[in-house]
Simulated assay, not measured.
Amino acid sequence: MTRDRTIRLDRQSPSDPAGTIRVERAGALVTLTIDRPDKGNALTLAMYRALADAVTEADADPGVRAIVLTGTGQDFCAGNDLDDFRAHPGTALTLSSPVLEFHKAIRHSHTVLVAAVDGAAVGSGATALLHFDLVYATRRSHLQYAFVDQGVVPDAAASLLLPQRLGPQRAAQLLLLGARVSAAQAAQLGLVSEVFESREHLDTRVAEQVATLLAAPEGALNATRALLRPTGNDPLLRMSAETATSARLLSTTNSSMRNISRAGGPTPAP
């Protein structure tokens, strides 16, 4: 049975209508597509809410065994829509924020999570990937953890998970300097599973890998996935601490925010 629906968001930011989250169901697979290409697929609070609801709904359906997240246009996700966040200061950085609810939803998810990245994954678009089981990217893609320049700290427990994966020095380079990481570099660091020449090759490989996952014994797959999750410090607690810290920073400083362009930006990571 196949279902295909689109969540169209009525909320608007001051400068541009909010985007669309497409939710497509094909058998045991749910595909979530961020559809706001004119804004680099930057996420508004309403879009975060739609993503959180879609992941939670898929998780509650025993017939769903895999979720794929992707984007349209030239970017995977340019991070947060800062105009929308400024328009809703009492919502954007709270413990009940849709941002935090989405990050918790993917952290809690017992469904296999696969990301298909084509283009820039910046800020929250990059940190969310830390919670995906498999991340596939095109060669033209890059990751960039652009938070300090925005006057805030990382989110999605990146301040915990990146040092665990890369060690403190490499994590500091990415988080303190906002260094751009090419898809090839990300693969070497273990942040990306595989890199492909084009979107067509990416989509083909993702479809093949999802088919393999859906054909695997469900119990063994889920148990292995649970064992692969980091133990020790709780990423959910770190998410809350990061959110509270960013809210405090923004309430006590008036630092101007620098936009990170897709063409320019900080020096690439070595």
Rank of each mutant, 00 (worst) to 15 (best):
T2H: 09
T6K: 07
I7D: 06
R11H: 11
S13D: 13
S15Q: 10
D16V: 14
D16R: 14
D16P: 00
P17F: 03
A18C: 15
I21W: 00
R22C: 12
E24S: 13
R25E: 15
R25G: 05
G27I: 11
V30P: 03
L32N: 02
L32P: 01
L32Y: 00
R36G: 06
D38Q: 13
K39S: 12
K39N: 10
G40P: 08
N41L: 09
A42C: 09
A46R: 01
A52E: 02
D53W: 01
A54L: 06
P62F: 06
I67K: 01
V68R: 07
T70N: 11
T70F: 05
T70V: 10
T70D: 11
Q74P: 13
D75I: 04
G79K: 03
N80P: 02
L82C: 00
F85A: 10
A87I: 09
P89I: 09
T91V: 15
L93K: 01
S96Y: 06
S97N: 08
S97H: 04
E101C: 07
H103T: 06
A105W: 02
A105I: 08
R107M: 12
V114H: 00
G119M: 05
G119V: 06
S124I: 03
S124K: 01
A126E: 04
A126H: 00
A126F: 01
T127N: 05
A128E: 14
L130G: 00
H131E: 07
F132P: 04
D133E: 11
R139L: 10
R140K: 14
Q144T: 14
G151D: 14
G151H: 08
V152F: 04
A157G: 04
A158S: 13
A158L: 12
A158P: 09
L161H: 01
L162R: 01
Q164D: 13
Q164A: 15
R165Y: 05
R165F: 05
L166K: 09
G167Q: 10
Q169H: 14
S182T: 15
S182W: 09
A183V: 13
A184K: 07
A184R: 13
A186M: 07
A186Y: 04
A187R: 15
G190S: 11
E197P: 03
R199D: 13
E200S: 12
D203E: 15
D203C: 08
R205M: 11
V210T: 05
A211P: 03
A211D: 14
A211C: 07
T212Y: 01
L213Q: 02
A215H: 06
A215L: 06
A216M: 08
E218F: 02
L221E: 06
A226W: 04
R229I: 11
P230F: 05
P235I: 07
L237E: 13
R238D: 10
S240N: 08
E242I: 04
S246H: 04
R248H: 09
L249Q: 07
L249D: 04
L250T: 06
T252G: 05
T253I: 10
S255D: 11
S255N: 11
N259Q: 10
N259K: 10
I260G: 02
I260N: 12
R262T: 10
G264L: 14
G265N: 08
A269F: 15
A269L: 15
